[in-house]
Amino acid sequence: MDEVDLKYDFFEKAHAGKILRCIQCGTCSASCPLTDQMDHAPRELFALIRDGDIITALRSNTLWYCVSCYYCIVRCPQEIPVTDLIYSLKQMAVQRGLSPAYHKLPDMYHSFTQVVARYGRIHEPLLMARYALRHPMDALGSIPLAMRMLKKGRLDFFPSRLSQPDRVSRLLAEVKRQEKE
């Protein structure tokens, strides 16, 4: 893997030069709701990248534990858009197949994007059915709750659809086509 390419993508395309302003105060890590699950909390993640080790950062589970609560952004004294930069790292990790195989969120997002590509909208039972192919225990665990929702009249068996359901799949296919140009 060419690290120079990765650094170019991050610093130039994603405008990540702002991390050079980081004073390593740790406010981001201390504000993060799932920091205790992360292998390299946000402060450390940026220290790694500044130290030249962008590959470790891209393989880090931190990217996938980020819940987008945006606390780090509003609290950073150096006005570094932490959450947005984590999004850029996630996109890079997915593109290059670096996201950690053991983490469930890349699978969840994959299932999510597939349901949207097919139906244009999210339908919770279909999303859970797809996700269950990879993580059956999570899906089984959600059945009692699904039954209660069903009883309350809150679950539809069929997804709500667009007038022409292939509109979104064609839109996304067009994105893919133009991306290659």
């Binding site: 819940v67 999004y87 996630k90 996109q91 969120l105 997002y109 999510f112 949207v116 979104v168």
Partner: peptide, 11 residues
């Protein structure tokens, strides 16, 4: 259609 949510911006 779906707004894309956190899922699409992540990938």
């Amino acid at each position: 259609n779906c707004c894309g949510a956190t899922a699409f911006f992540s990938v």
